[in-house]
Design a protein around this nucleic acid. Structure first.
Lengths: 252, 252
DNA sequence: CGAACACTTGACAGCCCTCAACGTGAGTGG
DNA sequence: CCACTCACGTTGAGGGCTGTCAAGTGTTCG
């Protein structure tokens, strides 16, 4: 099944035309997190803000960039959630990751001249897009920005390595739930009650298992009293056993 | 079983004291490959050469850096081969990769302040070590160097993603053999006859399977007439079926 | 020569995939 | 409003790939 055509939304500056707003929403962003921490001065931050393109909204199923498209830009998720997936020559799809607000997509494309995977909106998504040549050039002047780009890519290497290991279905699912919970908590949401934005099949694919196995593993977690799940609503009831299962994958 | 103590070999400049030699051997290196391609001038190359530490030799089993060690430097393999492996909290080890001359190790550590994995020599290894703070600073002045660092990290993201997929033992082994063959060919060695520097168990671990499964898969490849293997000596007899099996993993 | 290690081979079991059936809910059109 | 479709999700039965356990061979090395 071919993907629907890439959506090229019009630039939407109007929502963010106010500088105060721009500075405010960017405090949760992967870039300014580090930039501010590094003590980046106001003019430097301005240089970043000037080159940002606020794009969106994308809607569920919209293609943000397509595998094989020429690589020009990376993007930070401003709102909503995104999945990235790679389709191989035999048509098998592999979801590379799910991306929450403040996280950056497109970094794996830095090596080549084309995106190696597609990015698809899981719900209503707003993005901050950065031309990669531009941000790389800016990074030549701003050590904090360069360091942050290196850190983000280093983190992606480690993330990709985590799920390469030889762990069983329960360990992989526990790691997914715990990691998801932590990421939500870091963004100020409840770590114990949340709603998944992706389908069960997406989660299963990401965790390298079938939907059936995922469903059964979910059921076992519920029967153990570790979680309560209804559809995409998940509540973590007992965190410890999940953390214990996920420990080898998450806490290296 | 704890790893043996880290080896801190004395700096070995004497072997490479001649500038002509230095420039020569670095033409195969991951850094100068790009630097030269980018038309980097002589003085820029000199800046790189000045900050290189030629270290080694390491011998089989020597620890080059240890998981948990403070991260200071990345290194390009000059000669020999290296494995990187991560041990989780439950003691399970996962080999992250095998690294041949010209390839760079340590990039996954860029995110944190400690190496997330250990690097161990598989045979006699010579390295070019670069202080990461120094090379990052130098990259602020040399766009080609910065671009190359980004490319190297982007490549590592994609490499780590490849083996995350849901492929069976035969596909993973075929991908390993084909990729190894290609890397040797790129370095001027025979792509059809070569000698593996790592044990069968290392390969099995890297490919997320047991030694027994690896052994059986090897045997099936031999019975099919695709390869001839005696110990660590491997000959690729029929490349096509192996390439076909590896296609979904390698050629995205 | 004995020990340790690498590797192979076989028997068996278990995890997970495949196939199938079923239930639910959302969207659609009659 | 209701039947219909379709995607999503669950559950069960059966089988296959691969892990586990065990034994054996060959090689290296002290």
């Amino acid at each position: 099944m071919p993907l629907p055509p890439t959506v090229f939304p019009e630039l939407n500056h109007s929502v963010f035309s106010n500088d105060g707003d721009a500075l405010q929403f960017c405090t949760t962003c992967a870039f300014s997190n580090a930039c501010l921490a590094e003590g980046m001065d106001k003019t430097s931050l301005m240089a970043l803000h000037v080159m940002v393109e606020h794009i969106g909204p994308f809607h569920e199923g919209d293609v943000i960039f397509r595998q094989g498209d020429p690589f020009h830009a990376i993007a930070a998720v401003r709102a909503g959630s995104v999945k990235t997936l790679q389709v191989d020559r035999t048509g098998r799809a592999q979801i590379q990751g799910f991306h929450l607000p403040g996280e950056v997509i497109g970094l794996s494309a830095v090596e080549g001249e084309r995106y190696p995977c597609s990015a698809i909106a899981l719900d209503t998504v707003m993005l901050c897009r950065f031309s990669f040549p531009q941000i790389a050039t800016l990074a030549m002047r701003l050590p904090g920005l360069q360091a942050q780009l290196f850190r983000l890519m280093g983190r992606d290497i480690q993330l990709a390595s985590q799920l390469r290991g030889d762990y069983d279905a329960a360990e992989r699912l526990a790691a997914f739930l715990v990691a998801y919970s932590r990421r939500l908590q870091a963004r100020g949401f409840s770590p114990s009650r949340f709603q998944l934005t992706m389908t069960r099949l997406d989660v299963a694919n990401y965790l390298r298992m079938t939907g059936e196995t995922l469903s059964r593993t979910f059921r076992r977690f519920q029967q153990s009293g570790w979680i309560a799940a209804a559809g995409r609503d998940v509540e973590i009831v007992q965190r410890e056993p999940l953390e214990a299962l996920a420990l080898p994958i998450l806490d290296t």
